[in-house]
Design a protein around this nucleic acid. Structure first.
Length: 464
RNA sequence: UCCUCAGUAGCUCAAUGGCAGAGCGACCGGCUGUUAACCGGUAGGUUGCAGGUUCGAGUCCUGCCUGGGGAGCCA
């Protein structure tokens, strides 16, 4: 007897027509009648379920099977029969159904609509629902697509360190990493902490970005990317922030801001095309139940050229807008969420790159423009999510970089190795960071970051 | 951290200050092709917690807890 998966049956239905086969999975729904019944079975290999038909006549344990509830694991032996006139293209006529793992009546997932909030409380069971089955298969596919995109271009994949000693970027609060015992010596109340006694003999933290290390590798391999977890201990309670999230950070040498934007745009389009091609069932589901305009929106982006404007132009557009903003628009101030969303959703209706931000609101490593006032930064704003990518051309001129570090109160000694990169064969280079979860949100229409991370870590929440 | 809304059966939600309810799920029964089936019945409650006002509080007041949404910060 051939063991098959739902995925095989759906993809190669014809080759299994009328064949005897066996498969195993979990019951999504069981509808019994007097002498026959129907089970919707999902085995995890495909988004869709398949229908198992069972009849009293052929099953010795009909009464037992008829009582099996949602979530029960079973193995089925039977024959595949085409049913072109029914709602499903084929079904399995069971000759044997074996109980593998019972699921009692208090199983929390029911064949009905649940709130996302409730499902977060049962994060260990929610991947068995349609929505989360689709989300997490997309997450897996997207990770693969990202590797394929960069690997096809010859980029080298860099594993940036998770534990670092550099907290220079100022990107929010850090998670301290220490082996010191907080209940005793040498952390005494009211005294400063002696980190020389700590594991690394210095203050260390979980990384907030792999960018600085990626720059080092870009100046050896030319084109590199990181793809790994990053951490922020920021007390932010929004649908777009998590304490632990993944970032993709390509870094390209002998390249400027335009090359950087071209890469970002090409990557976004590649990812959309990849999903439209490889995740039909899931994307159709999102389009039907999560965001009715999703497919239309994504398809239009694949063919559209992303808008590119400067920060100064953005300020002008916002200044002339009839919209009333809560925060004032003024050159030198950072764009607020409401401004970003207005630009991408109301003015351009597609992704927008904003470049050339004032140096005062951007990080020290971004390359100073000739006007001495702005830096070669870029943010990619997309409808629905806001900022999805932040990047820049890096400052490759050692003197100017040191000046900027001084302005930003960064000690040269802490980043001696970063300055070395300018000293020895330093060239112009650029890179950007893409929030992996934000990309998933954008591509699926799911609006809460807690619903695209398998077991999300947010403020006050680290169950599972 | 700030603003705001909410918390009632396992879930999704009702209930003018006056008998705490429905749908789904569960359980029992019915049904010869169901599609989150359908039909009949049964069980299921410390109304988030602690106080207060009132003849009477799910409902009003105070404090706390938890969650959602928005903002800041950012990816």
């Amino acid at each position: 007897m051939e063991k098959v998966t739902v995925r095989q049956l759906i993809r190669e239905t014809d080759t299994y027509d009328n064949k005897q086969l066996s498969l195993s999975g979990w019951i999504r729904n069981n509808r019994d009648q007097k002498s026959f019944g129907f089970i919707s079975l999902n085995d995890g290999t495909h988004f869709n379920t398949i229908q198992i038909v069972y009849e009293n006549e052929f099953l010795s344990n009909y009464d037992q099977v008829a009582r099996l509830g949602v979530g029960t694991a079973i193995s089925v032996t039977g024959q595949l029969v085409l049913t072109p006139q029914a709602r499903q293209p084929f079904e399995i006529k069971a000759t044997e159904i074996v109980l593998e793992g019972d699921s009692p009546a208090d199983y929390p997932i029911q064949p009905k609509r649940h709130s996302r909030e409730f499902l977060r409380e049962v994060a260990h069971l929610r991947p068995r629902t349609n929505l989360f089955s689709a989300v997490f298969r997309i997450r897996s596919l997207l990770a693969y697509a990202i590797h394929q995109f960069f690997q096809d271009k010859g980029f080298v994949y860099l594993h940036a360190p998770i534990i670092t000693a550099s907290d220079t970027e100022g990107a929010g609060e850090l998670f301290r990493v220490t082996t010191l015992d907080p209940t005793g010596h040498p952390i005494a109340k009211g005294k400063s902490v002696d980190y020389s006694a700590d594991f690394f003999s210095k203050k260390t933290n979980l990384t907030v970005s792999g960018q600085l290390e990626a720059e080092a590798f870009a100046l050896a391999f030319k084109d590199v990317y990181t793809f790994g977890p990053t951490f922020r201990a920021e007390n932010s309670n929004t649908t777009r922030h998590a304490a632990e999230f993944w970032m993709i950070e390509p870094e390209i040498a002998f390249a400027d801001l335009n090359d950087n934007m071209n890469l970002a745009e090409e990557m976004i389009k590649y990812l959309i095309n990849y999903l439209l091609e490889k995740a039909n069932a899931e994307m159709a589901f999102f389009n039907q139940f999560v965001d009715k305009d999703l497919l239309e929106k994504l398809q239009s982006i694949v063919t559209a050229e992303f808008t590119r404007i400067t920060y100064t132009q953005a300020i002008e557009i916002l200044g002339e807008a009839k919209e009333k903003f809560e925060y004032s628009v003024e050159w030198g101030k950072d764009l607020q969420t409401e401004h970003e969303r207005y630009l991408t959703e109301k003015v351009f209706h597609k992704p927008v790159f904003v470049t050339g931000y004032p140096k005062g609101i951007k990080a020290f490593y971004m390359r100073l423009n000739d006007d001495q006032k702005t830096v070669a930064a870029m943010d990619l704003l997309v409808p629905g999510v806001g900022e999805i990518i932040g990047g820049s051309q890096r400052e490759e001129r050692a003197e100017i970089l040191e000046e900027r570090m001084a302005e930003c109160n960064i000690d040269k000694k802490d980043l001696w190795w970063y300055l070395d990169l300018r000293k020895y064969g330093g060239v112009k280079h650029a890179g950007f960071g893409l929030g992996f979860e934000r990309a998933i949100m954008y591509l699926t229409g799911v609006s809460n970051i807690r619903d695209v991370i398998p077991f999300p870590r947010t403020v006050n929440s680290c169950e599972f």
